[in-house]
């Protein structure tokens, strides 16, 4: 992996960030979690900013009044015991929760200053910019090349169909470039470059997951959401994914859900701890959260007393 940084040199930093200074401050925080536990000050504008987010599945409350700001070009880890709503939270950030019909979302989520739950929002555009990697690798039953080129082709970034070839608009070179860049970025190019036309389902689990990351990168997102991306993998594959995530943070904003606290401590810049009932209990710099948590319950959780 040589030149990923130069390839991604001009990552989208020039997008307009709206003023969000006049956002109303939430007042009704829970008694047991003072604002100071979840206030995390950082330089620059937040990439994603969540305010008073509630999610219900029917009568079950999955998230309870979450407010959090996520800085760009960093790794933010979301940890907590299972069922605490961290995956639900992640799926709110690119509105994948819309696909679960019973989910009811209140509150605001802003991406670069724009409310992503407002009317007229272009879901396609949002998901292009806020990509996602899932818990279990889910490559399409196509060749490795087709898996990577799938997004750019469908978004019209590259045109390689028969008509494009006939009319001299063939972008095959550009497509090859995207495929190679994405695979390199996902640290899997060396392993698959001699068999790009093989079916992706023939890869090992760890390779499949890195392929899914590459597939996500090919669409050129700004934020990458990862939902326990290493939970289905063996330790070696997990280590590779972790290295990869740290590298990706130089260019992208990564938000990762994990139930593995060592993993969160190793790779993340800041950590948010969710506890049962869908509440955000503590949020801050990773070192501080792990070494000197403000909340007793977080300390208990991190030291393994429950969870």
């Amino acid at each position: 992996m040589t030149d990923t940084s130069s390839l991604g040199a001009n990552a989208p930093t020039d997008t307009t960030v709206a003023e969000n200074a006049d956002r109303p401050q939430t007042t009704d925080r829970h008694e047991d979690t003072p604002d100071s536990w979840t206030d995390y000050a950082f330089e620059g504008e937040p990439k994603l900013s969540v305010d008073g987010l509630d999610v219900h599945y029917g009568s079950d409350q999955a998230l309870d009044d979450i407010s959090i700001e996520i800085p760009e070009q960093s790794v933010t880890a979301l940890i907590g015991p299972s069922g605490c709503g961290k995956s639900t939270f992640l799926r709110c950030l690119n509105r994948m929760n819309d696909r679960i019909r019973a989910a009811e979302v209140d509150g605001t989520v802003t991406f670069e200053g724009q409310d992503i739950y407002q009317d007229g929002l272009d879901l396609v555009e949002l998901r292009k910019r806020v990509g996602m990697v899932f818990q279990a690798p889910n490559p399409f039953p196509k060749s490795i090349r087709d898996n990577i080129a799938y997004g750019p082709r469908k978004h019209g970034t590259v045109q390689t169909d028969l008509l494009a070839k006939l009319t001299g608009r063939d972008d095959s070179d550009q497509e090859d470039e995207i495929v190679e860049r994405s695979l390199r970025q996902a640290a899997i190019w060396e392993e698959v470059n001699d068999r790009l036309d093989d079916n992706a389902l023939g890869l090992s689990g760890g390779q499949q997951q890195r392929l899914c990351i590459a597939r996500c990168l090919a669409v050129d997102p700004e934020v990458i959401l990862m939902d326990e991306p290493a939970s289905a993998l063996d330790p070696i594959a997990t280590a590779k994914i972790e290295d990869l995530i740290e590298e990706l943070a130089e260019e992208y904003t990564v938000v990762i859900v994990t139930h593995n606290m060592q993993q969160a401590a190793r790779i993340s810049d800041q950590t948010a701890v969710f506890l049962t009932g869908g509440r955000l209990v503590e949020y801050g710099e990773t070192d501080q959260v792990f070494e000197n948590p403000k909340s007793q319950r977080v300390e208990d959780y991190i030291t393994g007393k429950f969870g």
């Binding site: 690119n94 696909r99 555009e125 949002l126 899932f134 279990a136 996500c216």
Partner: peptide, 18 residues
């Protein structure tokens, strides 16, 4: 067809029809 496959495509910003 498992939902995970659809989710993978939708999360890349594809329309449901695509």
């Amino acid at each position: 067809v498992p939902d995970a496959m659809r989710d993978g495509a939708v999360a890349m910003g594809l329309t449901e029809w695509q």
